[in-house]
Design a protein around this nucleic acid. Structure first.
Lengths: 213, 213
DNA sequence: TAGATATGTGAGGATGCCCTCACATAGGAG
DNA sequence: CTCCTATGTGAGGGCATCCTCACATATCTA
């Protein structure tokens, strides 16, 4: 392996043109990662898709890992913003609405940004801790949301419940691959029902949970 | 790329020694995949771990994909056997027991065979359809189990519900990475509760679902 | 034992990839 | 206009990997 990153590569952009390049490179990288997976896409491909030279790519990203981390950081910020919005609206929602919103927020983001899933998966193999950090912060948001929605048990530790909700949100994302469409939609409905039942139970609701067909 | 698989590589073992070698190679490959991930492990490493020469490895597995597929096939058979056992025992179980067994069966397998998760993940990028086939057959087993446990709605399409149960089982596997241990166990308990609630609801049970602390 | 087939070996060809470097151009500051 | 820094370029070095091939050895059959 040639000694890596020995020169002054990896500098942040300073002029307008640099910022535009970086944006284009990040976008191109996302496309490539979605198309071929993280490991299979090469730096040369990314540069080609961005219509930049390979040297230009290395000017801003000294490494493929650095590129992935930058992208993951972007996605993290976007997701945090969505969770903030969810948190602010939680007090006005019924259990059903909360379940629907939790599942749709995550699933919608994945549809808009298909690279996100590829990146978090790749992050497990990468040396960076960013993936773990994101998961933890997302769970913290869920804890806050649950504390609002289930105030009776808010005194206890909400992290186990938040972890379960997090897994169900991940499931909603995974359902995007289901075929045919009718099955996918039916499964999404069932998943909503499962989450609603769980949230009802968490909040201590004893009313019948079978009011929706 | 050198023209691949042009010679008579990839033959099945015929003598006792060949079978032993194949077993050793598969085991070594599993270890490597778990340790470094599918993409990152090299054929040379696998051969070294098996204390075989690289040529010996290629004698039986013409390609890294073929190796992965053989392993995945083994895991599939083992999982099918477990699902058969589950199916046979389902009639005697309560909802709680069924939920526990479903979650533990899968989670236990992953603990015994950590390579399985790595392989199914890698299978998504691979050209083989084996991963999809396994998921479908697992879902079919779940449909049968649900048909026994929720006979009232067995006339309808159980696949959406089976898909949800499948996702929850996957979640149980994912929880294995949670730290610290106390949180993991609490989360597993919560996941069991979520599945129990869902199965109760599926079966049309109206009795209180909050009988367990 | 002799012949036939299965199995074992590892150097090395071919390939593709990551990344560097020496140099060219653009664009803003004084 | 001049200088200085930021940005752009792409050939190619160094290297790891996949896989082959010509040949050696083990194991079975008759």
């Amino acid at each position: 392996m040639a000694s890596r990153n020995s020169s002054q590569n990896g500098r942040a952009p300073q002029r307008r043109r640099g910022h535009e390049r970086v944006a284009t490179l990040l976008s191109a990288a996302s496309d490539c990662f979605v198309a071929k997976g993280y490991d299979a896409t090469t730096m040369t491909e990314i540069a080609a898709k961005a219509e930049a030279s390979i040297g230009s790519l290395y000017q801003f990203f000294p490494t493929k890992e650095a590129l992935a981390e930058a992208l993951l950081h972007q996605h993290a910020e976007a997701l945090y913003a969505r969770m903030e919005r969810l948190l602010a609206q939680t007090p006005g929602w019924t259990t059903e609405e909360l379940a629907t919103r939790l599942l749709r927020t995550f699933a919608d983001y994945r549809r808009q940004q298909p690279a996100y899933v590829v990146l978090v998966e790749a992050a497990q193999t990468l040396p960076s801790m960013l993936g773990r950090t994101i998961r933890q912060r997302m769970r913290d948001y869920l804890c806050q949301i649950l504390a609002i929605h289930a105030p009776d048990i808010a005194a206890g530790d909400l992290r186990p419940a938040a972890t379960v909700v997090q897994q169900l949100m991940k499931s909603a994302v995974a359902l995007h691959g289901e075929q045919p469409v009718a099955l996918r939609q039916a499964a999404q409905t069932q998943l909503q029902r499962a989450l609603t039942l769980y949230l009802h139970d968490l909040a201590g609701t004893r009313e019948s949970t079978r009011t929706y067909a």
